[in-house]
Design a protein around this nucleic acid. Structure first.
Lengths: 337, 337
DNA sequence: TCGAGCAACGTTACCGTTAACGGTCGGTCT
DNA sequence: AGACCGACCGTTAACGGTAACGTTGCTCGA
């Protein structure tokens, strides 16, 4: 019952040396004779000694070997793919990646970030929906890596990996134009940086192509399937309806799919962000995907580089990864109304 | 640059008291006069002091306030729903839930569990695919809660939340029989406890209903979409083919859906585990769902109860939550061949 | 008036590890 | 021979917080 785990002192006593020699052997430091080292290693094995990471981290002021990823909603394929990618790249350094969800709640997001910091996490990957990150300034100054993913930090400087939201949107809109559409509806929200960027890309592209944006084709609301459904329904049923829909978010897309099905006739659709069901439904959904492996690679690189250069704070980096159009069927439908 | 965060001692000095009084105020312990407490609280706020959880945990020997969930593959809806449920139930206790994936690798699973333990996680939620858990005995003896989800521990005793795999399978098979099927194929694997249970339930039910199981209707292989696809294809194209398919796992289901589509004609299908695309495809997929909120509730209860009764080890509990058949269309198709 | 009792603190020590520093000892160089 | 060196190892004191225990001073009853 409730046995204590052995400590360096226990090992030291059993081996007839000081705790310091044990520590040296464990960390591969010089200054211990081969015979002594051998004896210590034997005792370590015999007692099943494992160093206490809390104590080590407390003493060394770093080294929990934990990376925390904060995502706004529970683990969609998007975040998952990224986590997996980062995980593979940092595993060699002995780093563990864990994920927590803020559930789209800013307070919860801050609480989670704070929890990670308090607990000595070595770095944080942050898909933030917060509109102010100044509370992170002390941490950033202290040199702890916080990498922003998807949207840039507000009020502080930090390394960031963004997606080419405008470019991806431009490709989608041009794709629809090329297939004969002139009335392209967009369903989006404004409270997230990516969504706002995508709306901007939509307007830009239509303007550049001489189509002009019609307010009656724009639906802005909460990021929920319910809003997506209602928005798509009204786009399709209004006077002078949309012949194609561009969705800026997966949750909206889910609602839009329901509306299109209820509508009866197929409607052209391009959705930002790939999702598993996209190729299972009929017709398969044309999507704009973010280059997640690239995002993960950059994020991992930034993290490792900042962890290596302890103390001295690096100049924050910022990269933008491309977004790719993946034609699958739904985006190639001609106008029908 | 690289400023240190304030410590209790800094606070104490600034407030003109001892570190211990600060500690008492922070933990709501008695023994500090109201005026002194007020002054301390002011200084705490002014310095932005936040206690160092590592130091606290090291001293108190518990209290990282972290729960780790280990899942075999990255965050499918199944695990996600459970995490969310647990998260809500333990949040009041100040506990944070994070998730890590073993990526279906037993070594990785053990490494992750070990990492959580070393880092002072207060409890572990384990969706294990390991065939031996004796390595956890010391931890269980020490009183740290490890809750097994989905499959029971092997070689040790620990609290467990299981799903009624046999019951759910029975409902599915009976459902298909009721719709006129006599040749019901099953696609499954054996290396996981739930899959084995589901196969057993399948055989049991067929036997009880006087149909008898035909080896040519059983496909056992790795849990991958590729195998699912190949298995379904052969089930549908062999002599005396299956008229209905029962899938025991989501990854298999994905492959099976592809095979059915390639097959051309609709085929009755019931899949274990719900998934998002299930209601988006045509026809919508009839599934057997696990009662995840109930699982989460039980798991959280077990955890909290074990955390409350520190030291003394509780008798391991075991509960089985029901599985429900959700008819959506694909399971109600009649035999066609 | 003494001291029992308690509130309000401070001191010490410890959690487990390691950085910084010191000491010892055998050997080399001049 | 004495100075000097480096390899090996131990001692001390942190890291940040708090349990356990002391200390102080005050109140209040006998």
């Amino acid at each position: 019952m409730a046995e204590r785990r052995p400590t360096v002192r226990d090992v030291a006593r059993a081996a007839g040396v000081s705790a310091m020699s044990v520590s040296r052997v464990l960390n591969g430091q010089p200054g211990v004779g081969p015979e002594t080292a051998r004896r210590i290693e034997e005792v370590v094995k015999a007692l099943g000694f494992r160093p206490n990471k809390l104590a080590t981290t407390l003493r060394r002021r770093r080294g929990m070997s934990l990376l925390g990823m904060v995502v706004p909603y529970p683990y969609t394929p998007l975040f998952t793919a990224l986590t997996v990618e980062v995980d593979e790249l940092v595993r060699d350094e002995g780093l563990i990646v864990v994920t927590g969800s803020s559930d789209r709640d800013v307070d919860q997001e801050r609480a989670l970030v704070g929890a990670f910091i308090e607990r000595g996490f070595d770095g944080i990957l942050l898909f933030s929906e917060d509109a102010d990150h100044r509370y992170l300034k002390p941490e950033l100054d202290s040199g702890r890596p916080v990498i922003f993913l998807g949207s840039p930090p507000v009020g502080v400087e930090a390394s960031t990996v963004l997606v080419d939201n405008r470019g991806g949107t431009r490709d989608a809109v041009e794709h629809l134009l090329r297939h004969g559409h002139r009335r392209i509806g967009i369903v989006t929200s404004l409270d997230m940086f990516p969504a706002a960027e995508r709306l901007a890309g939509y307007k830009e592209t239509l303007a550049r192509e001489g189509v002009g944006d019609d307010p009656s084709l724009i639906r802005i609301g909460p990021i929920t399937p319910e809003f997506g459904q209602e928005a798509a329904r009204s786009l399709l049923e209004q006077d002078d309806p949309a012949t194609a829909i561009f969705s800026t978010n997966y949750l909206l897309t889910r609602g839009i799919l329901g509306a299109i099905r209820a509508h009866g006739r197929p409607v052209a659709l391009i959705a930002f962000d790939d999702f598993e069901a996209a190729s299972l439904v009929d017709p398969p959904i044309t999507v704009v995907t973010q280059d997640l492996p690239a995002m993960g690679r950059h994020a991992a690189e930034m993290l490792l580089s900042q962890l290596a250069g302890v103390g001295e704070r690096e100049r924050p980096a910022r990269v933008v990864v491309p977004a790719h159009l993946v034609p699958r069927g739904s985006g190639e439908l001609p106008p029908t109304s």
